[in-house]
Amino acid sequence: MPFTDHSDIYAAVHEKGINTVVRHLMRQRPSLFNYATPFFHQYPKLFCNPIEAAPTVLQAGNPLFTEVEPLPIYGAPIPIGVNFCLQLTDAEIDFHPGNIVRLPAELGKLASQHLAIRLKACVGLDCPPTEWIERMLPAIERLLVEQQKLAIGEVKEQTGSPRLSTGAVSDRGAAELAGPEARELFNSRSIVIRDDLGKLSVPARGIVVLPTRELTCFCLELFAVAHFEWGSVPGSTQPWLKTRLDGLEIVDLAPTPMENAIECYLSTVLRLGILPQVIVPMEKLIFDVTSVLEEQGLSVSQSITLQPAEVPADVPDNPAIEQDELRAFVRLKITGGS
């Protein structure tokens, strides 16, 4: 059967092709899929999943991840953070019939004209060693007393030590207060930490990053089912192409009420926050060939446009999700002229 039996022009992309493109994107722009604190420049082996980058990326010295601030320790008298990383390690799409993404039982079997998406994300979070916490604790307590931030309220004790405040000066003061171990922690301009991994120096940006030996990693898999549909938008006279989320499931998250709550929140974010922003009006899907020809210096007396084949007059679904492909059917319309 010819491809164009229901339209003038037919275009299709196979799920295998889309997934291959995603893999290329992950290898050639890894910074779009990996987020971590600058610490990981020195210790890339601590990533939950090794980052596979294309040789061109490595040769160009492109960053393998996007730098983010350390995860803050809320309540501490000075800015303290812990290293972490977030990696999107897998992304797959599966057009009906489902044969790539094995959907969890909660989402059932992939229905006709639907697509499934599987995303796998891993998070690695530093858990500071107890001995470091105990070593820092005197300085933290001293700072809290100085700053009068204790739960019991104001304390009138005089320490006789220089008054401390946050910032570079307070770091030096804390070092004087807490002895040589803390001196290693709080250096005035940069934070120097000696641990089992060796000596590392992280430029100070007003935040103290706790030393990291290893990360605690966990991965979550997210499955989603969606479809396309044509619909109206109040106040608009033209049809709109919309992406609709049919279901979302995070696997192996417990307890179940928490899983349900997170899934519900993510679904709501997608349905009300993200997917409404990607609806497409019909006018954007009409390609004006006449103006393109005129730009090329060829003036035509007719109006020539490429526009989606009509549903259901021309085809039952457009775009259609079938036989592992996303398919679009296009009509060539020539009007006017003699």
């Binding site: 164009t4 003038d8 022009i9 992309v13």
Partner: peptide
């Protein structure tokens, strides 16, 4: 099945011609 397919009908060629 190919990753990408684009097909143009003979009628489209005739109309464009």
């Amino acid at each position: 099945m190919a990753d990408m397919t684009l097909a143009i009908s003979e009628a489209t060629f005739q109309k464009s011609f």
